[in-house]
């Protein structure tokens, strides 16, 4: 038991840790450094190419979904010569804690949020990465059970119920306007509504600050009360009905 686990830990270190990059220079030394018994350490020297392939293959498996989901973040950091360092730092923390392949990209986002990696240089980095993943998360959000009694037409006394996949997000930068060729966002407050349309595709909509606030507030109190609290002169009932038709709002709950 102990030797099998030690060997698995050594291979994981070869794949994920910085010293794994130097494995091919001294495979036996690397294995000894992992505390393996001499016979096992010497075996690492018999298959240096094959073991090194595992570092490449496993890192490719982990990095591929990140590169796919965060093309603008990658473009920005590559331009700054920091992408490889970012990936190395992420992998080294071993924070992919899910068996689901789809959870690798969210794990990367979570790592950025937790460590604030690169934020001193690129204060918008976390927002940029979040915006890149937002549509994917909305598109794949598990279907939920809606409360009974939802109405299609809003009335001032109703509360609104968002579709379970819908997210109202606020950024300090216009990160949704970036591209791989122009990855640095303008610094301006941005409010977005991300929702799933009738075809199941994620859609993004720019919101005014007032509309964003209303969509949040009117979930916990009536539309009228929420509008009053926000100082809105008019009740935007046509907008709310439009958002229900588009799929962002699941319906309206009478008081």
């Amino acid at each position: 038991m102990a030797e099998t686990l030690a060997l698995q830990r050594a291979l994981a270190a070869l794949v994920l840790d910085p010293e794994g990059a130097a494995f091919e220079e001294d495979p036996v030394g690397f294995a000894r450094g992992q505390g393996l018994p001499e016979a096992h350490a010497e075996a690492f020297g018999r298959f240096p190419g094959g073991l090194a392939a595992y570092r490449e293959l496993a890192r490719l498996s982990l990095v591929d979904p990140i590169e796919t989901m965060f093309p603008v973040t990658k473009a920005l950091l590559e331009r700054e010569g920091a992408w490889e360092g970012c990936i190395d730092a992420f992998l080294q923390t071993r924070c992919v804690g899910s068996r689901h392949y789809r959870d690798i990209a969210p794990a990367f986002l979570g790592w950025l949020a937790e460590t604030e990696w690169g934020m001193a240089t690129w204060p918008f980095l976390l927002e940029l990465a979040h915006a890149e993943l937002l549509e994917v998360l909305v598109a794949r959000f598990p279907d939920g059970i809606l409360p009974e009694g939802l109405q299609e037409t809003p009335h001032p006394g109703d509360r609104l119920v968002l579709d379970p996949a819908t997210q109202v997000v606020a950024y300090r930068h216009a990160v949704h306007r970036t591209s791989e060729t122009d990855p640095v966002p303008e610094a301006r407050p941005t409010h977005l509504l991300a929702y799933r349309d009738a075809e199941g595709r994620a859609q993004l909509m720019d919101l005014t600050p007032a509309a964003a606030a209303l969509l949040v507030e009117a979930q916990g109190r009536s539309i009228r009360e929420a509008a009053q609290a926000l100082g809105l002169a008019d009740l935007p009932l046509p907008l709310l009905e439009e958002l229900r038709i588009r799929g962002a709002i699941a319906g309206f709950m009478p008081a």
């Binding site: 038991m1 030797e3 830990r9 994981a12 994920l16 496993a58 498996s61 071993r94 068996r99």
Partner: peptide, 20 residues
Amino acid sequence: TAVDGSWLHELLPMPFTREA
């Protein structure tokens, strides 16, 4: 495919030992 709670998302080989 996982060690100490960390998923590597690669099919990694078992040692060809009696213990394994």
